[in-house]
Nucleic acid binder design. Structure first.
Lengths: 121, 121
DNA sequence: TTGACATGAAACCAAAAGGTTTTATATAAT
DNA sequence: ATTATATAAAACCTTTTGGTTTCATGTCAA
């Protein structure tokens, strides 16, 4: 098994708006914790915890340099999100999504809400 | 302003694995709450709350039909996620991401960890 | 070598999340 | 008419989340 404690996944990690903003900042360039903190109306400790969550999701990594800890973006795990999304793209990229649902519901071509007799218990 | 109570956004909505599975089930076909519940080891009430969250994010909508409430997928809000993702794709789709970061950090072409003198207070 | 700076770590806290059980109500079926 | 079904709504509970404050520690600068 991996040496990393995978407590947080990508989906959880990006759920928080502060963490998304942290990612955006790190997309520009690598930064130490204090510099990241300067962009938010909260304590350094709070940001450090957010970085911890992002780190567990392997979206960032931190390297100690002198007395600072420099964080950098690690975007690879976002591919999981992209894969997940690709499944749903077909539902909106062709505008037939609703129509397809109707057609795939056998025996009912009326309103798209399946009739009760057609639904299996 | 919108009539909908936008308490939950798409990022939060998809953060929970149960809710992602609900979305997958609704991608197959529209279903009433009880049918959705049958796929999970938890109460109908719990699932109803998850559907509420998904509904606030406008990822699903429910329509009362007889004594049932039929839910269907509404994938459009996922475009927001796709847009968000597209910003980060450039960081992994060309493998120059790390190199680019180095180059864009002026005056330092050494190791990619920016020197302290180069970082503005 | 003595501060100042950057972080780490721990204890604590309020609110939100994710679940339960209970009670009520509307509809369907017998 | 009566009973079974499907959901709604409310109260409650436990754990997690997102934040704080305080104290300790390592590193840089004067």
């Amino acid at each position: 098994m991996s040496a990393l404690a995978h407590k947080h996944d990508v989906f959880q990690a990006i759920a928080d708006p502060t963490r998304r903003e942290v990612l955006r900042l790190l997309a520009e360039k690598e930064r130490p914790i204090s510099e990241i903190t300067a962009h938010f109306p909260m304590s350094r400790t709070a940001i450090a915890k957010h970085l911890q969550v992002l780190s567990e999701a392997e979206l960032v990594s931190g390297q100690k340099v002198g007395r600072e800890k420099i964080y950098r973006l690690h975007p690879e795990p976002l591919t999981e999100l992209k894969q997940w999304l690709s499944f749903y793209e077909k539902f909106w990229e062709n505008k037939l999504s609703i129509l397809k649902n109707i057609v795939e519901s056998p025996g009912d071509h009326s309103i798209g809400i399946i009739k009760q007799e057609d639904r299996q218990k």
